[in-house]
Simulated assay, not measured.
Amino acid sequence: MPSLVEWRVDERPPRLWTRLYVAVMWVLRDKRAFTGQEQTVWIVRPRRRRPAARVLYLHGGGYVHPLTPDYWRLVRALTAAPAEVVVPAYPLAPVAHVDDVVPRLVALARSLDDLPLVVMGDSAGGALSLVLAGHLRGAARRPDAVVLLSPWLDATLDEDQVSDLEATDPMLEETGLRAAGRWWSGGRTTTDPDVSPVFGNLDGLPPVDVHVGAHDILRPAVELLAQRADRADDVVLTVHERTAMFHVWMTRFVPEGAQTRRILRDRVRAVARPTEPRHP
């Protein structure tokens, strides 16, 4: 079956509030890293309705940063689908690496079998989401949809445009990302598909939506993903690009973030099954 690749561009300029917010982001740009070995799993449910779908949400942070408050803003929006959102705080590099974490996430995903499932993640979590979809490709219960938010698809950052885009991205720095990618890869190369899923097998994946900003240094690898998906078999890939946006804007307290969160809620709602109100 031929594949379908679609790239949609939203060219609206950023709002004034967003411009001010980004200016503060540059001032507070975070250079710290955190490590950990344990995996805590958070489960967030809607208050007044039974969940009609489930989201397995894999957070970003370059494999070295933990969950931050911004992620819960997105999680709250997703519960309105209504959905249950499962958020694993997976072990981090350099203490842990890909071979420690991916098997845990595969086992977690396979245990989530009673509701339609969307695997979603941002940045490094976006890469993990695509890796996870590949591992679950032949499973009896695979995801119904995969959503990648500003995904870090190529840990090598070898695309020519990366250096030019760094000057426009208030969140990411190329040098630190390269180091984090090496830590995360462990005994693998950084081009291994479990580390850089843009090089993996895309045949037969569930429908994939990618949201990316034009100012994101990770955008070039999304172009490569679209090219490879176009040559793959039986995959539907839709890229949603915001020309004025930066890395992982959809978690931030800006108008464009709220707009994208509503789009993501509706994407989850599209795979949900009918549900009834939750009774006291």
Rank of each mutant, 00 (worst) to 15 (best):
W183Q: 12
A124W: 00
V235L: 04
G200W: 09
R182F: 06
L264Y: 07
A145Q: 14
S129R: 03
F34P: 02
T156N: 05
W17S: 12
A33C: 12
D230M: 14
S196V: 02
M250P: 05
V101I: 03
A180L: 02
F246R: 00
A140F: 12
D158N: 08
I263N: 13
D216W: 02
V131H: 01
D209W: 03
T68N: 01
G187Q: 12
D194Q: 13
L28C: 07
T251Q: 08
A124K: 00
G61L: 02
V22M: 07
A258R: 13
A77Q: 08
T18P: 01
E276R: 10
W42I: 12
E174Q: 14
A221P: 10
P88N: 10
P82K: 00
P170Q: 07
H247P: 06
G61W: 01
V212S: 11
P151G: 03
R188V: 01
L67Q: 04
A270T: 06
A232M: 13
F253V: 09
S111F: 03
H59G: 01
E174P: 09
H247F: 00
V271Q: 03
L148A: 06
G200A: 06
P51C: 11
L78A: 05
P280H: 15
A77D: 11
A244Q: 04
P207I: 00
I263S: 14
D144R: 08
R178L: 13
D70I: 10
A96V: 00
I43M: 14
M25S: 10
D144A: 11
P51D: 11
M245A: 11
P13A: 07
T251N: 07
D144C: 07
A77E: 09
Q161I: 05
